[in-house]
Nucleic acid binder design. Structure first.
Length: 222
DNA sequence: TCGTGATCATTC
DNA sequence: GAATGATCACGA
């Protein structure tokens, strides 16, 4: 285990030092074995980096480094530096949402300061050979936050109106709503069309790849 | 069961 | 090829 990070600079330095390291190296340091692929270990790389940097929040609904107000996100890139996957932000509240607003939302809290760590997502490269990229800190610009806020508000309005089952991943410019569950049979409470309680699939907020791709391009001057 | 870490795999 | 809806693992 690394030293707990007490300030942003040492966290960022530690993350920067991971650039170029292979997943095999980082796994060995933590006594982990590298799976052959990610089919049954989808979160493995994310947890590998959490371990390497001493993230503490576990599965709580908190930022990864609550003391620093920093969220850690790995983002898999292809050979051209484009994101291969959307980025999960947090689960979506579906009930007791009357008083929620953007300022106090979990989405805003998580995205206020993100330590992005690009990783090699190319499936044709054996997992143990893939490497960590150059970490960077990001805070949404005013324009980016406005986009996030507008999408969040639109989704939450539909949920409040009992229209959660009408929301598809096509909606939202930068922030989409998609299932987030063990499988499609999982159910949770939500508001129905007439204000009653219904059972529906749990949802999560995800950043679209176009949005994260733009962040990557800006940071690396591509 | 929920929230965390996400990617898979089929469809578009 | 990109994107959506489905899925996998684990800890509390």
């Amino acid at each position: 285990m690394p030293q707990p990070k007490h300030d942003l600079a040492s966290l960022f330095n530690a993350a920067s030092d991971l650039a170029g390291r292979t997943f095999a190296e980082l796994a060995a340091q933590q006594g982990l074995r590298v799976p052959n692929d990610l089919r049954r270990d989808k979160g493995w790389v994310g947890q590998l980096l959490e371990g390497a940097l001493g993230a503490s929040a576990g599965s709580q609904a908190l930022q990864d480094f609550p003391d620093l107000g920093v969220e850690l996100k790995t983002i898999p890139l292809d050979a051209n530096g484009k994101p291969l996957e959307t980025t999960f932000v947090c689960t979506t509240p579906l009930i007791d949402i009357a008083g929620l607003n953007w300022e106090s939302s979990n989405v805003r809290n998580k995205l206020q300061c993100v330590l992005w760590i690009p990783i090699d997502g190319r499936r044709e490269i054996p997992l143990h050979q893939r490497t960590v990229g150059t970490a960077f800190l990001w805070q949404p610009s005013a324009a980016e936050e406005a986009q996030l806020r507008a999408d969040w508000q639109e989704h939450m309005d539909k949920i409040a109106l009992g229209q959660v089952e009408q929301i598809t991943a096509h909606q939202g410019e930068v922030l989409q709503l998609r299932p987030k569950a063990a499988n499609s049979r999982v159910l949770t409470d939500a508001i129905g069309p007439h204000g009653e309680l219904i059972q529906t699939l749990p949802r999560g907020f995800y950043l679209k790849t176009q949005f994260t791709g733009q962040i990557i391009r800006t940071v690396f001057n591509i």
